[in-house]
Design a protein around this nucleic acid. Structure first.
Lengths: 175, 175
DNA sequence: CCAAGAGGAGAACGTGCGTTCTCCAGCCAC
DNA sequence: GTGGCTGGAGAACGCACGTTCTCCTCTTGG
């Protein structure tokens, strides 16, 4: 197994486990078992668990935003499509809220790299929405709706929070 | 020290520590030290840590909503006052986001009592907003804004997220 | 003054986990 | 074949923490 292949399998396993059960609830041994990569290789690729967590967050950020971007772009870059995408996401079987918000809650004082990954993810999403909506203030308002809908969908388990936010976004965009 | 006084001091210490550092990062010994209540009495009042966590959340729910209600009522029950209260909350020195959202993120599969406390808190807030705003759909939209602003203020550290949400709320209420 | 019990301080126990170490099997150059 | 290297499996170590246990010290009633 090549080192890059090992890294891929580690990140894949880490994402599945960390997102589903939370970072703290998943031991390095579980990542090892799920990925099939030996502990020695694991610690060669990621010298400490924090490094793996940060890599997990950064990779999830990339993929999450790529998926959103692709969906919205296919809808002609209509800002309201964001909420259609959210609705689909909330309906996925394993949906458990925003990985970054969850991680923020998990660590009282996150390691610097982890805190940075969380903040940068939110910055990237905000920047993306500002590109989608001409008016910056409106974009920030939509961002708040997106975050709110995600938190509430996670806690209540109801994907229709996306529809509620969508209706609000429609009004804000028309104003 | 009377048992009820011990319970009060335990809950006070638990809230300060759990909210500031996260539940998992705080050991029972830290609660004991902070409260000045012996471990024996602690375990008499709360047979397990989960019981203390659940009591912490339920007490915080009561006080948090009481504070919001009082502030908004003093503003003539204007729904927009909710966002003024949020702004104040976000500006407090120890602000670290919503305790319930943070706890939800901390526990992959929360104990039943804890999960119920989290869900019931959000239900109570939603019900309160529905009482404040005649139109139920609009109330739910404001709720989404409230949650979004709270999450973003916690992560970015910027209390002005409350103002962003307030502007959005103003538009939604006028529609 | 004594007996008995309550309550506190903190040691002790068991467990889980991040990280490191040990040992061994397989593979290469010669 | 043989000596040395790579990499895997999993034991071992150290620590933290939830929970329980032990012992000691006060208080109180007679």
């Amino acid at each position: 197994m090549t080192p890059t292949e090992a890294t891929d399998r580690l990140l894949e396993a880490a994402e599945e486990l960390f997102y589903a059960h939370g970072v703290q609830a998943v031991g390095m041994d579980a990542v090892r078992t799920r990925s099939g990569v030996s502990l020695k290789r694991l610690y060669q690729a990621f010298p400490a668990k924090n490094d793996l967590v940060e890599a997990y967050l950064r990779r999830r950020d990339e993929r999450w935003r790529a998926s959103l971007r692709a969906f919205v772009h296919a809808c002609g870059d209509d800002p309201l499509a964001v909420f259609g995408w959210l609705r689909n996401w909330f309906s996925e079987p394993g949906f458990r809220g925003c990985a970054f918000v969850n991680s923020f809650g998990e660590f009282g004082e996150p390691a610097p790299g982890i805190a940075a990954a969380i903040r940068e993810h939110k910055d990237h999403v905000r920047t993306y929405l500002r590109g989608l909506v001409p008016d910056q203030a409106t974009a920030d308002q939509l961002f708040s709706l997106v975050e709110g809908a995600t938190v509430l969908a996670a806690i209540t388990g109801d994907p229709r929070e996306a529809d509620t936010a969508r209706e609000a976004a429609k009004v804000l965009l028309a104003a």
